[in-house]
Write a protein that binds this DNA or RNA. Structure first.
Lengths: 289, 289
DNA sequence: GTTCCGCATGAATCGATAG
DNA sequence: ACTATCGATTCATGCGGAA
């Protein structure tokens, strides 16, 4: 299968023609937003966006397994003081194409770019639209459990050596008691609101979204060895996440620059994983083994 | 003007006929969500929702001032495993009616009830759709500024006595300079993501949203003495918020039970505000004076 | 060695000015 | 009149160097 663990150059609509029906477990992608990355991509106008997207989505529908999931990261831009409606229209059209609109996750970008305008505050969230072919799809909810609330998270992460000692000695103190309660049973299911910062200081590649974002959805909707497709792979974040998690990936991009960037990135990831597995090969607990 | 500071019983579509054109500064409302069980309280089926809503929205458009804003708190329910599309369709239809879809705020319900379903996590966000008649509307952004994030907060709170002295003595040091930048301007503009808990322990009335939610939008889009309309006023949360902030209100509900509840609530609010202003009448600094 | 601060920078948008 | 380009806006984050 020559499309496994590859970054391919081209329009996903054409490239996917070589991928068989019902072969992909998860499609996670963040297509170029309308008129946004004009220098790197063609720059699709908001008015044309739906027509531009639909034929590609038809291929996505074909290659996705019946139990698979399609997650679309997108946000409409402001045009003439209004939110443009192309995302809403896209959802309606995708349903006509046969997709089920199962859920809308919300990505809260904690560190959104500063500023305000006379009639508007800073936009700090994006949509993560979940589409499926059937009502019953694979979902591994236990894989994305999170520590109980931010309060516990903060406190636990700040537990220095001394704090832990104090915890054992001062059993009677509220603090000590409390912490010991959290340890061991501190995982709960998340909600459909995902709090993550945008990565802003990644030296070599500037990704549209942080590595954690595809990581979260790959854990949620696939198992090890499954195939993750990103038809607009950009700098390769989705592919890297898939590789790290022991899933197969297929990344496609029509920009030669991004194609190279993504390919270099997965090669580096591969190398890092190998080094790590060699380092830890004696204890046999390595994830990537 | 007999519609000022009143709770009125009836269908807002009819009741608003008595309200003049261009007289309302803010419409803030959370209409009854579409309900599959048609015969429970005012239930409207998802399929009929848009048609049910549009004639009312037409009246909203008429009574709203050109500089006014319409904020709609809504979230689509799940029907047959899918998010229903009536909210998307409603946005598109409202635009055809002449509304501008200026923004979509996100209400993150921080304390949403834990739990999950086989194919779905807990829903912990709702839409707050902002519509306007014109691109230029009143917006008082300074009224909703918030303390700066945890980072600066933590840092400022750690400013001990010695730190502040050091700040003044070591003027040349980068540290001193930086802190003096923060002091005095620890309020920043918020984003379009609003973090608020749902109210869980309100003795007498179970509101669909917390008092802070209308409070935030009333501060943002109106000045003192302006008129706030809630055409589905329910338990009266919007009216209470308006009253407390020194705005006029008009609340409408078609349910006699809710009508009574809301009316009792604003009477109690009125009484509380009077007591407070009497208590503080000597210093003359009372907001409600 | 640890903590603390400086700095660069990130899916943006508006209004004004120029072609 | 319509479109294109430019400057101003000003917070959270993580890294690196300084104390």
């Amino acid at each position: 299968m020559e499309y496994l663990d590859r970054i391919l150059l081209g329009d996903c609509e054409n490239v996917l023609a070589n991928v068989p029906d019902n072969s992909v477990d998860l499609i996670f992608t963040s297509p170029p937003y309308a008129d946004q990355r004009r220098h790197t991509y063609g720059g699709v106008s908001p008015a044309e966006y739906v027509d531009w997207f639909l034929p590609k989505a038809k291929e996505f529908l074909r290659v996705l397994k019946p139990t698979g999931t399609f997650v679309l990261n997108i946000k409409e831009r402001v045009v003439n003081g209004e939110r443009h409606t192309y995302v809403l229209e896209l959802i309606l059209e995708l349903r006509k194409q046969g997709w089920l609109w199962t859920e809308e996750f919300m990505w809260h970008k904690k560190n959104s770019y500063p500023g305000k305008w006379p009639n508007r505050f800073r936009d700090s969230w994006e949509r993560l639209l979940q589409f499926n072919k059937h009502r019953h799809f694979n979902m591994y909810q236990d894989a994305v459990m999170v520590p109980v609330g931010d309060w516990a998270k903060t406190r636990l992460s700040k537990l220095s050596e001394t704090d832990q000692i104090r915890d054992e000695s001062k059993v009677s103190s509220g603090f000590g008691k409390n912490v010991s309660n959290w340890i061991g049973r501190d995982m709960v299911y998340p909600t459909n609101v995902i709090h993550m910062s945008t990565e802003c200081s990644n030296r070599n590649h500037s990704a549209a979204f942080p590595l954690e974002l595809p990581t979260w959805f790959i854990k949620l909707f696939t198992g090890e060895g499954d195939l993750v497709l990103d038809p607009f792979v950009g700098s390769g974040t989705t592919a890297e996440a898939a590789k790290i998690l022991g899933r197969h990936y297929l990344g496609i991009d029509s920009s030669p620059d991004f194609y190279k960037l993504a390919e270099e990135r997965v090669i580096q990831t591969q190398r890092r994983l190998l080094e790590k597995s060699e380092t830890y090969s004696t204890n046999g607990n390595d994830e990537s083994s």
